[in-house]
Simulated scan of single mutants.
Amino acid sequence: MQQLKYTLITGASSGLGKEFARQCAAMGRNLILLSLPGCNIFSLAESLELEYGVDVRFFEFDMTNTEVLQRCLQEIMSQYQIDFLINNAGVGGTSSITATPLEKIDSIILLNVRSTVMITRMLIPHLLQHKESYILNIASMAAFTPIAYKTVYPASKAFISSFFLGLREELSGTGLSVSVVYPGPIMTNSHTTRRIIGQGIKGKMGLLPASEIAEIALKGALSKCRVIIPGLMNRINHKLMQLLPAGLKLRLVSREVKKEIQFAT
């Protein structure tokens, strides 16, 4: 009997991760959903199984805990065949560096960088066992320039971009395809929604529903695209920003981001 294949999604309980889960289930893909404890992931798993008739497994743990992450991944890999990894879990925020608690800085680095690299490294040999497999990584438009008042977040997303594009080249010639998606603003929770609305028309430029971003990202990843920038406005913005000197681009973006601080808490 052929063993079932699964798509593993990190940060699957809400926002873009939840939309990835829904759309993958609609494709008939069995799922392994990872989330923090207390995020009601059981309810999501149950509803997806009932609606789409797929097998959905879920695991609740803190990915920034290295020991727990390694133990849970070993358990998952010993039981399930994974042919698609979606690295969606991430955290950010807007504040001056001196007003940002050390714990917050550490959590961004641990989740966005270390945990993402670790889970990818552990799963690569597993993914390579399949004739075709995929890794989809969520970066951000913020990866394309340093930004004051965010500092650590865009740096973490620039790392993700660099790491996974390099990994794609390293894995070329294998059956494992690596894609990176660069979303613009997304209304994923009350804080980001308040910030985007507060910015007015500028905050809404490039804004897309999570459902549309997930659809574009999945289509691109399964088509083995290298770079995916959802939304015409975001693609135009990226091209225009490439024409600006780095210093000017940094000042322009940072000036707009500074306005977010009043909406960040």
Rank of each mutant, 00 (worst) to 15 (best):
E19D: 11
M241F: 08
R226F: 06
E75P: 01
S172L: 09
H191D: 13
C225Y: 08
V68C: 12
G93W: 08
E215L: 13
F144R: 09
G38Y: 05
S190W: 02
T94M: 09
P185R: 07
L69M: 12
Q79D: 10
A264S: 14
G28I: 04
G28Q: 02
L136H: 05
Y149S: 05
L243V: 11
F163T: 15
G184F: 07
G28K: 03
P185Y: 06
T98R: 15
N189A: 10
T145A: 15
E60H: 03
S177N: 09
T120I: 11
L127E: 04
E260C: 07
H191G: 06
K258Q: 14
E67R: 12
I228L: 09
G220T: 04
L248M: 14
F58L: 08
I236W: 05
T151W: 05
T10Y: 04
N137S: 10
I9H: 04
P245F: 03
E67L: 12
A214T: 01
P183M: 08
A12Y: 01
R195C: 12
Y153A: 08
T151N: 14
A246S: 13
E215M: 12
E169D: 15
Q199A: 14
R71F: 02
L218D: 05
V113P: 00
L244Q: 07
V181R: 06
Q2G: 10
G231S: 04
T100N: 10
R255A: 15
V257C: 06
S254K: 05
C225A: 11
A99G: 00
E170W: 00
A246Y: 07
D106F: 01
S179E: 03
S35R: 05
F61P: 08
L4P: 00
L222G: 00
I108Y: 01
F20I: 03
I138L: 11
G11Y: 08
I124V: 15
Y80A: 10
I196K: 05
V253R: 12
V152A: 11
I197Y: 12
S172E: 15
L171Q: 05
C39A: 13
M77V: 06
H130Q: 12
E46V: 01
V178T: 07
R235E: 07
K104Q: 15
L33C: 03
M141L: 14
L73A: 03
N112R: 01
K239W: 12
E103R: 11
T174G: 10
T94R: 08
K258G: 09
I229F: 06
N237F: 08
